[in-house]
Computed example of a mutant assay.
Amino acid sequence: MLASDRPRHWLMKSEPAECSIDDALAAPQATVPWIGVRNYQARNFMRDAMRVGDGVLFYHSSCALPGIAGMARVASLPRPDPTQFDPSSTYFDPRSSAEKPRWVLVDVQALRKTRTIGLAELRSIPSLAGMGVLQKGSRLSITPVSPQEWETIVALADHG
């Protein structure tokens, strides 16, 4: 992938019971570590494609109204996710070691809360039909967002 071809916008899912847009906004510098990603493709996006400053659609999942709940940005380079080493964590991975970590995280800085743009609304917009989050069977917690999809969603969030 050429540097010019890499995605510059992402949709990142979080369960609000674990970390909501409000939690992120209330954190120091409105920044939270994106812990617990345990899918290789999502990990590879963080490790290989994300750059500081990339735009993030902060998506609430596994809740009453799943959808985009805020805007954020990637705020750090990838680093090992410490939860993989903690036996008391639900994200513990006994096959991971400090010498050979399997999982990474990036810091995400929340920029603002938006109205929730739910799945039904996203599905109703033809130009968003290709979004990863709208694909049947898609469970990936991190997906690239095209520049056109990003612009459409920013306009929705701003003008609803």
Rank of each mutant, 00 (worst) to 15 (best):
R6V: 08
K13L: 01
V154I: 12
L122N: 06
W103R: 04
C63N: 00
S76F: 09
A110H: 09
D22C: 09
L122S: 06
G132H: 09
A155T: 14
M12V: 12
W150D: 01
P80T: 05
I68L: 04
P126K: 02
E151W: 12
P16Y: 03
F58H: 05
S127V: 12
L119H: 08
V106Q: 08
G55Q: 02
F85H: 07
G70I: 02
R51K: 14
I117N: 07
E151M: 14
G36F: 11
V133S: 03
F58L: 04
A155H: 13
V108L: 15
D22R: 10
T31F: 00
S96G: 05
H60G: 02
A110T: 08
A120Y: 02
R8D: 06
H9K: 08
G132N: 10
Y40K: 10
R43P: 01
V104L: 00
P7A: 12
G70S: 03
D86W: 02
D158Q: 13
D86T: 00
A157R: 12
P78R: 02
V56W: 02
Q29T: 05
P33A: 11
A72F: 05
A42H: 03
R51L: 12
M12P: 07
Q84R: 06
G137K: 12
A49E: 14
Q29I: 01
E99T: 15
